[in-house]
Simulated assay, not measured.
Amino acid sequence: MKFMMLVIADPTLYSEEETPITVDEWVQEYDGSGVRLDGERLRPPSAAKTVRRRNGKVTVTDGPFAETHEWIAGFDILECESLEDAVAVATRHPMATHGTIEVRAFWPFEG
């Protein structure tokens, strides 16, 4: 099964806890095992554009849709046997210590 792992940063959080491994080590470990299919860092929300279409009118604004301290800092696409396996992979990511990791199964279109 494919899973999207969203890496969420929150600059208001502070933790002195050591991360189990570095991001580079995490990428090497899971790229090497075939679990991590793809992934990238994302530019900060200040570089984002939000697009809306309402009643035929398109509006493009700077920044994220929601006002929040948290922001999506990156993503990874995982191939795992189960949600539990994907969660186990996410627990080793350094941002699980200093941010939040959200894991969701892909929901393919049918037909």
Rank of each mutant, 00 (worst) to 15 (best):
5 M>F: 13
6 L>Q: 11
8 I>A: 07
8 I>D: 01
8 I>C: 03
9 A>F: 14
9 A>R: 15
9 A>T: 07
11 P>W: 09
11 P>A: 11
11 P>S: 01
13 L>R: 03
13 L>T: 01
13 L>P: 00
15 S>P: 00
17 E>S: 06
19 T>R: 06
20 P>K: 00
21 I>H: 02
23 V>K: 11
25 E>Q: 15
26 W>V: 00
26 W>C: 08
27 V>T: 12
32 G>K: 12
34 G>I: 09
36 R>E: 13
37 L>C: 14
38 D>M: 14
38 D>G: 10
40 E>T: 12
41 R>A: 15
41 R>Q: 13
42 L>R: 05
44 P>C: 12
45 P>T: 04
45 P>Y: 02
46 S>D: 14
48 A>M: 08
49 K>N: 11
49 K>D: 04
50 T>R: 08
51 V>F: 05
51 V>E: 03
53 R>S: 06
53 R>I: 14
53 R>G: 04
55 N>R: 13
55 N>T: 05
57 K>Y: 06
57 K>Q: 15
58 V>P: 00
58 V>E: 01
60 V>A: 04
60 V>K: 04
62 D>C: 10
62 D>A: 14
63 G>L: 03
64 P>V: 07
65 F>D: 01
65 F>H: 03
66 A>V: 10
67 E>T: 00
67 E>S: 08
70 E>I: 00
71 W>A: 06
71 W>Q: 06
72 I>M: 13
74 G>T: 05
75 F>H: 10
75 F>E: 05
77 I>Q: 09
78 L>C: 09
78 L>I: 07
78 L>M: 09
80 C>V: 05
80 C>E: 09
80 C>A: 12
81 E>F: 02
82 S>H: 02
82 S>K: 04
85 D>H: 09
87 V>F: 08
87 V>P: 01
88 A>R: 05
88 A>Y: 04
89 V>M: 04
90 A>V: 01
90 A>K: 01
90 A>I: 01
92 R>G: 00
92 R>T: 07
94 P>E: 05
94 P>C: 07
96 A>L: 08
97 T>F: 09
97 T>C: 09
100 T>E: 10
101 I>Y: 04
102 E>R: 06
102 E>P: 03
104 R>T: 00
106 F>M: 12
107 W>V: 11
108 P>C: 04
108 P>G: 03
109 F>T: 06
111 G>C: 01
111 G>V: 08
